[in-house]
Design a protein around this nucleic acid. Structure first.
Lengths: 138, 138
DNA sequence: TTCCTTGTTGACGTAAACGTAAATTTACGG
DNA sequence: CCGTAAATTTACGTTTACGTCAACAAGGAA
């Protein structure tokens, strides 16, 4: 029916292709798989990663850069994966999403606090710099 | 006179006072000291933390919540501690501050990307929820 | 076929950030 | 002065997130 679903020409990545693409090692990809974060196709023994896996990997790496643990990232991916049919399940997903949103928001706030402080420091240093410079030229 | 004070009423915290204040263990405080992030006073063998140490601790813990490593936090604290007299040193501090600002800004952006995605997901789930609910009532 | 590249499964190693237990002081209220 | 709570050092343990071999299999190019 849907021509969009598994197209014949959908690109598959080998483990080295994908690792080079994101500048990580293949060990990392296997590790994420061990942790249940990725589930690439298998053709024989070899792994082949679909677009879906690549997108998940992007999310994982972004989470890592932000300091989240793999477990935590797993939970966030679960939100995306969830396809709940029952009302209570839907509500639960929404609830967990909202909880995560709170965390993320306060993280943004803390980051902006630090940013403001560094900017203030920068201003201070700039002023001191100007003072020294003009002092020199007298 | 219950609280221990030094000159001018500056409060000194014992290790347990400070750890309870921030809900961390004394081990953590000693660890931060081993890593060179804190340098409390010593009276005999015992540690006594000044306001300055408390503020630094706050910064450290905020950094940790944001996923920074202790080394990285150390570098950021160095920015605050720096009291450069030479122009080149001043410029270096400003340069490093700006570099850190770039990092922090992009971190905010990545967080906001995630936030937007979760909100979109939430909207989708909400819609689905309404569908099911109205469907039921027919 | 043979060689080379790529990939696979163990399995042990490591760095960071503490946890935790042991053995000893040190400080302080009664 | 004494007992107990609080601190100290020392040192091995733990968790997370991979790094780093080793040993082996499999597919492709020459």
């Amino acid at each position: 029916m849907s021509a969009r679903q598994s197209r014949q020409g959908a690109k598959l990545y080998s483990i080295s292709e994908l690792s080079e693409l994101y500048d990580i090692t293949s060990r990392t990809l296997r590790h994420y798989e061990d942790m249940g974060l990725l589930l690439p196709e298998r053709r024989g023994q070899q792994r082949f990663y679909r677009e879906r896996d690549r997108v998940r990997l992007q999310l994982i790496l972004r989470g890592r850069r932000l300091g989240f643990g793999l477990r935590e990232i797993q939970e966030m991916l679960d939100l995306y994966d969830a396809d709940p049919t029952e009302i209570t399940q839907l509500q639960e997903v929404i609830r967990r999403g909202d909880a995560k949103l709170q965390e993320l928001q306060s993280q943004v706030e803390e980051l902006q606090t630090i940013i403001a402080e560094i900017i203030a420091l920068r201003t201070k240093m700039e002023r001191r710099l100007q003072k020294i410079k003009t002092g020199r030229q007298e």
